[in-house]
């Protein structure tokens, strides 16, 4: 059912049947280390280039989600997946062997939200019985593409974030009374550009889009922050969180205790020197599949709003002096009760 301006409420909510997360060494050493399905110690994932490493990561995560859910590959009708690299090479090379019809998505770090939005609509619309949603990022491929070669020395400002090496994958299925969690609604984000130009301060570029999507969700569902046990943004980091809470406060919403951010959860900024927090599509995707969904499954959180955030810039737009617009996609995830 269409709701308000940008939301959908599912009368028969699709359910998450299976999930998997694989991360790199540094992420494994972070506070969520024990929750991931697998921590790969080799940053190259046994491959000989960073790009192949990220493709391998996607392949392994997809296979693991399929295996954990005891599902057959051919039963998955569509794959909604993406990464940060130009022309989505991590996804396209990583998913060749899966032989699942693919929608390749680019939503920068918001990709997991985009994949869940589209995947749950495909299921609820009756166009598929099972779909997979997946997103990955790798520190080295992102650094190489967007910033500098890894051996090049630089000082990272405190507002900068650390791209997560990780991948998260979920299999969605048709409405039923069992499963890990249900997706009961979505709020699709739109581009929000507040004129930020500093690529070392992505949190500030994305916070307004998170604010906009959360606000839109409240309006469309006619609820407020008390409706959710947690509102979880993707990778706003410290600076972005401060801004989001300030904006929300101006609207009369206090998100201080209900809000958290995947980028803040995945690393310990004190000991891991990650500055503002983690980022990349693998950040929200892997945290979803390791930390958030188990808590919803157990009922510790009954209802959460998962809002992955993305900064949509390219090296071309950046060099041409363009601003960094942001996008955020909301997904309402609920505990499946008896």
């Amino acid at each position: 059912m269409q709701l308000g301006k940008a939301s959908v409420k599912f009368e028969e909510p699709p359910v998450i049947l299976s999930m998997a997360s694989i991360v790199g060494k540094k992420e494994g050493e972070g506070p969520l280390g024990k929750m991931f399905d697998m921590v790969e110690q080799d940053d190259m994932f046994g491959a000989d280039t960073w790009e192949k490493a990220e493709s391998t990561l996607q392949k392994q995560t997809a296979d693991l989600a399929i295996e954990k859910g005891d599902i057959r590959r051919k039963d998955i009708r569509y794959l909604f997946a993406g990464d940060l690299l130009g022309q989505l090479i991590a996804t396209s090379f990583g998913t060749v062997d899966l032989e699942i019809p693919l929608f390749g998505l680019f939503g920068a770090c918001s990709t997991m939200g985009e994949a869940l939005n589209l995947g749950s609509m495909a299921i609820a619309g009756g166009f598929a019985d099972k779909v997979m949603a997946m997103a990955s990022s790798h520190f080295a491929t992102a650094e190489k593409q967007f910033r500098f070669p890894l051996g090049y020395g630089n000082q990272r400002p405190y507002s900068s974030s650390w791209t997560v090496t990780g991948c998260g994958s979920v299999v969605l299925g048709k409405h039923k009374k069992e499963g890990i969690a249900a997706i009961t609604g979505i709020t699709t984000g739109r581009m929000v550009d507040m004129g930020i130009r500093d690529s070392m301060n992505m949190g500030a570029a994305m916070a307004p889009s998170a604010f906009h999507t959360i606000q839109q969700n409240f309006d469309d569902f006619q609820v407020d922050e008390s409706y959710y046990d947690k509102i979880i943004t993707g990778d706003l980091g410290k600076v972005g969180r401060t801004i989001l809470l300030d904006f929300m406060k101006n609207k009369g919403h206090n998100l201080e205790s209900v809000h958290t951010d995947c980028g803040l959860e995945i690393f310990d900024s004190e000991t891991q020197d990650t500055h503002a927090g983690g980022s990349g599509c693998g950040c929200s995707a892997s945290v979803l599949c390791s930390y958030i969904l188990p808590k919803v499954q157990s009922g510790e959180w009954k209802r959460v709003l998962f809002v992955p955030t993305g900064a949509l810039l390219s090296t071309v737009s950046f060099n041409e002096g363009e601003t960094i617009p942001g996008i955020a996609h909301g997904v309402v995830i609920e505990h499946i009760g008896n």
């Binding site: 540094k26 520190f139 080295a140």
Partner: peptide, 8 residues
């Protein structure tokens, strides 16, 4: 001689 390495 050298291979790319991860930043720590």
């Amino acid at each position: 001689i050298f291979k790319p390495r991860m930043k720590s």
